[in-house]
Amino acid sequence: MTTAAVKLLTVLFFFFAVSLRATATNGESCGTSSIQVQTMNTGARAAGGDTVFEVQVKNLCPCSVRNVRVDGGGFATTVEVDQTLFQAVDGGVYLVNAGEPIQSMAAVSFRYAWDHFFQMTPRSLEVEGQC
């Protein structure tokens, strides 16, 4: 199977999985599975030589969500991260976007630098109003 075919199948599987998880219509609540956290190596290096990573926290819920929190997986960085985008709140838990709403299919991104990436997982969220 070619690389292009594998990528296409991966994308199709992703959209199929998202369609199964998006359950916020008719008053049902979206859960942490509605939040996608991706970490990508930017290929850049920080001043100290650490690799720069970009994290994208995306809302796959058909509703706006707020107070999105993620487990940081031992998060550390050698560069400053904008506290309004990603802020430690309690014992390895981080608040995304200062708790402000993230619209459906929108993402919040930030960068950090370290010698390896950190696996971050959604912990909690609140669905905005009725959708």
Rank of each mutant, 00 (worst) to 15 (best):
L85A: 02
V55K: 00
V6D: 08
V65C: 00
N97G: 15
T42I: 05
V57L: 12
V70M: 01
G99S: 07
T32G: 09
H116Y: 11
A4M: 11
R45H: 12
Q87L: 14
K7P: 09
R21F: 06
D82Y: 01
Q38R: 07
F16R: 06
R66N: 06
A98M: 08
T77Q: 02
L95D: 05
A107V: 07
R45E: 14
L12W: 08
C61L: 05
Q83K: 10
Q87C: 08
D115K: 05
F86K: 11
F14V: 05
D115W: 07
V81A: 03
A113I: 01
E54P: 10
E128A: 07
V96K: 01
A17M: 13
N67H: 01
D115V: 04
A76C: 09
C63V: 06
V96M: 02
S29T: 13
V108Y: 00
C30P: 01
S33M: 15
N67Y: 01
S19W: 02
V18Y: 00
C30I: 10
I35H: 06
D82M: 00
F86A: 01
G49L: 14
E54L: 13
S19D: 13
P122R: 02
M1R: 13
F53L: 13
W114Q: 10
F14A: 08
C131H: 04
K7G: 10
V11Q: 08
L125K: 04
L12A: 11
A106S: 09
A98R: 09
R21P: 06
Q38G: 07
F13W: 13
P122N: 03
R69M: 03
Y112H: 04
Q103Y: 00
Q38Y: 12
D90R: 14
